[in-house]
């Protein structure tokens, strides 16, 4: 039988559009509707930059979440790790006299270690990731409250604030972080050996073991990465607010899961792409922004988000069944 390599030869972009046709069309329709209903406000440069900045934190969490879900797991602790690292970074400067650099690095290292701990327990025991990270969600949140006595830690230090409020030309720093992580994660997942292993672990972990894949190490790396991204995002968010907020990131894990699922990543593992997750992030971001511009309150936004998730996943399933 002759080998059909046309799929391989296909341009990466063409392939990306084909695979994400449904969500891209959805995103497009939303943008078109908003351009009519907001008198062009939606398309103003200021608003578009705003949307990107708003989605940047969810994007970073969702990248990590995509890795976790592809391995067949989940990471519920990202919102809490975000809060703890953010609070610590402010606290280290204000209370412990760390330099900004030291504080930021220490806070990120601690958050990353919590991710590593998640990964270690998941890899070495049979406790399901849902439970392990649910526990970490409680622990990290509790730690953030204890450290801060439940109060925001004000840190009006320009050198610190700039991490979240700075601009490179017209582009806010958080958007740049997002772009950098997007590229790194796309390459990691689709081009490297580690990425292959991630798919193998989620697609069939037994077959992965029988193929010499180090399943435990792969899982540990995935949760460590997710922890790192959450910690980094936490520092950026608190720097922007000039205050370490122990209540930051409440239910952020749910938005990250929603974006991942919208992008077509299978909750049962083995399937998913970072690029698709990015579309999911944008759909949620544009939806929030659009409903804001239209003056709908945030409670309605939640309902809208729920409906969009249901619809998108249903359409995705129909598409797959027809195949």
């Amino acid at each position: 039988m002759p080998l059909d390599n046309t799929l391989k030869a296909q341009n990466g972009f063409v392939r990306y559009f084909k695979e994400n046709m449904g969500t891209l069309i959805g995103l497009l329709i939303m943008c078109v509707i908003l351009s009519f209903t907001t008198n062009g406000v939606f398309y103003s440069q200021r608003n578009l930059v705003n949307v990107l900045r708003q989605v940047s934190s969810n994007a970073c969490l969702a990248f990590g979440m995509t890795f976790a879900i592809i391995t067949g797991g989940i990471d519920l602790s990202v919102g809490s790790i975000l809060a703890l690292s953010g609070t610590l970074s402010a606290g280290f400067i204000v209370n412990s006299g760390f330099s900004v650099q030291q504080a930021v690095i220490a806070a990120i290292v601690i958050g990353t270690c919590l991710g590593l701990f998640n990964g270690f327990v998941i890899a070495k025991t049979t406790i399901p990731p849902f439970i392990v990270t649910l526990a970490m969600m409680q622990i990290a949140r509790g730690a953030a409250y204890i450290y801060s006595n439940g109060q925001p830690i004000r840190a009006m230090i320009p050198e610190y604030q700039v991490i979240g409020t700075g601009y490179l030309g017209p582009i806010p720093y958080p958007v740049i972080y997002m772009a950098v992580f997007l590229i790194i994660c796309v390459v990691l997942l689709s081009k490297t050996r580690f990425g292959r292993h991630v798919y193998a672990v989620g697609g069939n972990d037994k077959a992965a073991i029988f193929s010499g894949v180090n399943v435990a190490r792969t899982k540990m790396l995935v949760y460590t990465m997710s922890g790192f991204l959450a910690a980094f995002t936490g520092v950026v968010l608190c720097a922007r607010m000039a205050s370490g907020q122990p209540t930051a990131g409440q239910s952020f894990e749910m938005d990250a899961i929603a974006a991942t699922v919208l992008g077509g990543t299978s909750m049962s593992g083995g399937v998913g792409k970072i690029g698709s997750t990015m579309i999911g992030v944008l759909i949620i971001g544009v939806l929030n922004n659009g409903l804001n511009l239209l003056g709908l309150n945030s409670f309605w936004q939640q309902i809208a988000k729920g409906i969009v998730i249901l619809l998108a996943v249903y359409v995705d399933m129909l598409k797959k069944r027809r195949k």
Binding site: Y199, K206, A207, I209, G270
Partner: peptide, 9 residues
């Protein structure tokens, strides 16, 4: 199916 292949890939 269980040990040899990642069927969905």
């Amino acid at each position: 199916k269980e040990e040899g292949l990642v069927l969905i890939n």
